[in-house]
Design a protein around this nucleic acid. Structure first.
Lengths: 192, 192
DNA sequence: GATCGATGCTAGCACCGCTAGACAAGCGAG
DNA sequence: CTCGCTTGTCTAGCGGTGCTAGCATCGATC
């Protein structure tokens, strides 16, 4: 029995290794550079091994996305819990969100831009994604305003942050005004 | 002279043909399906011909983007000019923007998501892109609020719309609440 | 110790963006 | 009208992609 256990453990280790390698290459050279050949070379196994863990590249992106979503949720909660007032919590949340997107562009893309084969906004949505949304909803529900569905408000706020993050990073917004834009967005959207 | 003129005209025609073909294939089967082979087959020339018009695939995306930006600007102006009050103009603008993104996903991606080698938000930004931004700034400047830079406000509003458009289309926002989200965004962001 | 299934490998498929070099068509000069 | 040359297009091919069929080898089990 113990042999099988060990094999299972080793398999799980190797799977984590694949995800970590994909993330590292993507963060360093972009997702286009994450090829099955480079990935297999990185983990020191041949390409077909990848396919014994994942259906294909898409699923590898999905795995990175789930890992990233969990980290984002943690970062969001840490930021929000360090502030006193509802408004301060939301400001901290927004800064943390945009900071994460800027510091981990490849992971952010895996979660919110690329197709990782994940299901969003449904009953069978993976737990890390649900939890990441919840980590936004918690502080934002406080400032949604009377008669406004907190979920809907969170969606709008999140989408706005996503727009700032993606347009900003692709050079479509002027450099240097990020903080002013964030401040304006928070000021206008929340009701406190 | 006339012969050269004719040749120049034919060349320009063919270039338009390439852009139109790229757009058509992208809109029908996604940008991944826009390969140089399929494109060349579509225009009934060999692949190298593409490279006598464009440096590569990126530039073709850029050409589609410029065309799309011009159409977006026109759609935005048409929507805004059909409304009476500043608030109504902005609501119409938002709906038109999101409608365009939904009806022309490939073109929208060419302009705002893919890398078409275009420069945004700078002096040497291509005119169609500047004009597209101006078409947003016109109605939005009216409702930016006192002491708020209209340009900055437009960036924030635009980014929010972009977030709604992209997250919505990739299935990351619940289906069916688009109009409510749009309404909430407009209600909160504008000052009238 | 032999057997046999699990496991990872080599090799290769069809496709990608892009380009070198051959080749033909059409031009101006003599 | 013919010759040479430019201009334009094509065929063929390079190195890369995601993915897979089929073989070989290793190691747990009887």
């Amino acid at each position: 029995m113990s042999v099988q256990e060990r094999k299972k453990r080793e398999r799980a280790d190797r799977e984590r290794l694949i995800v970590a390698a994909a993330r590292e290459i993507a963060e360093e050279h972009g997702w286009d550079a994450v090829t099955t050949r480079r990935l297999s070379e990185h983990i020191e196994y041949s390409q077909p091994v990848l396919y014994s863990h994942f259906r294909g590249k898409r699923e590898i992106i999905g795995a990175v996305a789930l890992e990233g979503a969990a980290e984002m949720a943690a970062a969001a909660r840490a930021a929000a819990s360090a502030a006193d007032t509802p408004r301060a919590r939301v400001t901290a949340l927004a800064r943390a969100y945009l900071g994460f997107a800027e510091s981990n562009p490849a992971v952010y893309d895996a979660v919110f831009r690329l197709d990782g084969g994940l299901v969003f906004a449904q009953e069978d949505t993976p737990e890390p994604l649900k939890d990441a949304f919840a980590s936004l909803l918690d502080p934002l529900g406080e400032v949604a305003g009377d008669g406004i569905d907190p979920g809907l408000f969170t969606e709008v706020f999140w989408a706005s942050l996503h727009g700032l993050a993606t347009l900003g990073r692709s050079g479509r917004l002027p450099k240097g005004d990020a903080e002013r834009r964030t401040q304006l967005l928070v000021d206008r959207l929340i009701m406190d």
